[in-house]
Design a protein around this nucleic acid. Structure first.
Lengths: 349, 349
DNA sequence: TTGTAGGCGTTATCAG
DNA sequence: CTGATAACGCCTACAA
């Protein structure tokens, strides 16, 4: 309510028919002037455009969608906007898609699988013609529902070798194997781990597995008392580091963190309780946020080009929409950014 | 292309008519079962819902929009998603609106007035029924265009007393007057200022004016050599602090920053070049990001409840959509968060 | 409470 | 290159 149709001074109620009348042509020509300019004589097009401008007319998307069976809508499902990682991805995706006339619907799951399913349902109901979804651990049937509608989709952020879904992202397990290898090479044998909630989060699960697997290759295992799972915040990083260092038994010489916020918290707490980094303790993060190179010592972390992910996802979906059957792009590389928060393990213990 | 209509195994092509047939009712009843359940006998509704589920049918939004003249679409225009401040606002707005069945279109201007105008045009063309716009310094005619379409709107984030637009936000000038007063009370008389680009950004302009005005009340002015304008990054904060302290003439004893990133950069640089905070130099930020209480010393800054802004904006727009003529909500308060990065000015110089 | 019928604004087809 | 006309899928008076 509150709006209405062709009321008021007349402006917002113009239809193609009105423009056609004003320009002295048919509605078909009006439509062509906007959607297939090359099929209309230049001077006629001019007239139509002028008439449309004067009447303030633009094609009504509902009418257009109905007749053309195209909505020019795409959707992207992310865990949350409150995170640079996803914000960058969405930004790049949106930029690319809107350049092609596709409007992007953004849905946030708040890291909840049910909300994710609902968001996808809503977007489908809205008529999205393509979908980008972060991660692949979703309610069973989610991807089937999407595919059943004939909507092309792509999984973003993570790229699991062997996954049956087209994906644009990096191998989370490999990224953490890389971190583990780095620390093992420095001589570390006692590890701690502080990570974000792993439920419904395949990225986190993959990372942990990558870490464990690589440590196992050297006969090293994570002691349960050195593992903490909780909110991806600086505060939780602090709290966790303290409790890990207070745990009975030998202290870890390296603590791996699920992201930079946790690592920054750990770094701050280490300083606060007088543990020297990296001499006594190595700490690693993930994401390479702006703050990571400003900490003292600067943080060793992994960098992922999130804008690139968004861009490639958009390109892939655009290709699908164009009727091509693009081969899913290869995984991106995550890069280990070596800084001063990691160093050789203290010899012996 | 790539989709098509009622092809395939039949699923995605179901229409209201098919559901009606399957349920043994008319399309009118199918429509009512979805949009006005109370007007349909419970058992009939059941039948319809079951038939719809079996056919995988949902009302096609284009058809619905066309017939009902309602799109259930709202838009929000923000400078960028790469910023917690706006991400929080949008998140809250979206949560609130989608609870009422309204889908939110998000447009980013990238701090560019032309892009902003384009985004608004696009959203209007898409049929948004309400609009939230960050800030009020936009291309002339932008708000008129919106109003001419009969679309209710609200300006968010900033609330300028005397503005002709309904707005949900806080008084940016007042917020910086508060900061200025705080520092003046501590005895400071020599100020520096590091701020983000002010072009097309009324929030920043208002803050600077608030600062200047309050300083002027005490006969204090900002020296040009102590003012820096540039990207809102930690790096620019560092660079700026150094060059301000290197400038000829008396050094400022307090540096006001346009946001926390700049302030954190300034803090880090001060430490790096051996200037003690707050003994020799006071530094203030804006936003109260998570990192602000973790710096050494913790940062004095201003806090704004961005989620609250998003929520109130949504409520206001919802009220407009419901046909009520809500009075624009009162401004929110920004809160000075006193921490250890500000202290008494060194006596004398 | 339910069915009938007309129209929402545009695009696509097919002549001309 | 342009015009007439039939969809597109749904909602909503209005009538029953």
């Amino acid at each position: 309510m509150g709006r209405g149709g062709r009321e008021k001074n007349g402006q917002p109620g113009a239809r193609a028919l009105d423009v056609a009348a004003a320009a002295g042509v048919s509605t078909a020509t009006v439509s062509r002037a906007f959607n297939a300019p090359e099929k209309v004589a230049p001077e006629v097009r001019e007239k139509v455009l002028k008439a449309a401008a004067e009447l303030g007319w633009m094609p009504h998307p509902a009418g257009a969608a109905l007749a053309s069976r195209r909505t020019w809508l795409a959707g992207v499902l992310i865990p949350t906007l409150d995170n640079d990682v996803f914000a960058s991805q969405v930004g790049a995706l949106q930029t690319r898609l809107s350049a092609e006339g596709v409007t992007v619907l953004i849905g946030c799951s708040n890291y909840d699988a049910d909300q994710a399913a609902n968001q996808v349902r809503t977007m489908l109901a809205r008529g999205v013609e393509a979908l980008a979804v972060v991660g692949e651990s979703h309610r069973p049937g989610l991807f089937e529902t999407i595919a059943a509608r004939g909507v092309p989709y792509v999984v973003t952020y993570s790229h699991r070798p062997g996954s049956s879904h087209p994906s644009v992202g990096f191998d989370n397990a490999a990224a953490f194997r890389r971190i583990a290898r780095h620390l093992l090479d420095l001589g570390h044998r006692d590890f701690g781990l502080i990570h974000q909630p792993s439920i419904d989060n395949d990225r986190v699960v993959a990372r942990i597995e990558g870490l464990r697997a690589t440590l196992a290759e050297e006969g090293v295992a994570l002691r349960p008392q050195h593992v903490r799972e909780g909110p991806a915040s600086i505060a939780f990083g602090r709290k966790s580091l303290r409790s890990i260092m207070d745990a009975p038994g030998p202290r870890p010489t390296a603590v791996v963190c699920g992201n930079d916020a946790l690592a920054i918290g750990a770094l701050l707490e280490a300083r606060a309780i007088g543990i020297r980094v990296p001499e006594e303790l190595s700490i690693t993060g993930f994401d390479d946020v702006a703050m990571a190179e400003q900490t003292d010592p600067p943080l060793t972390t992994m960098r992922v080009d999130n804008a690139e992910i968004g861009q490639r996802a958009a390109d892939y979906l655009l290709a699908c929409l164009a009727g091509r059957q693009p081969s899913p792009p290869p995984p991106l590389e995550s890069r280990l950014i070596l800084r001063a928060s990691t160093g050789a393990a203290r010899s012996a213990a």
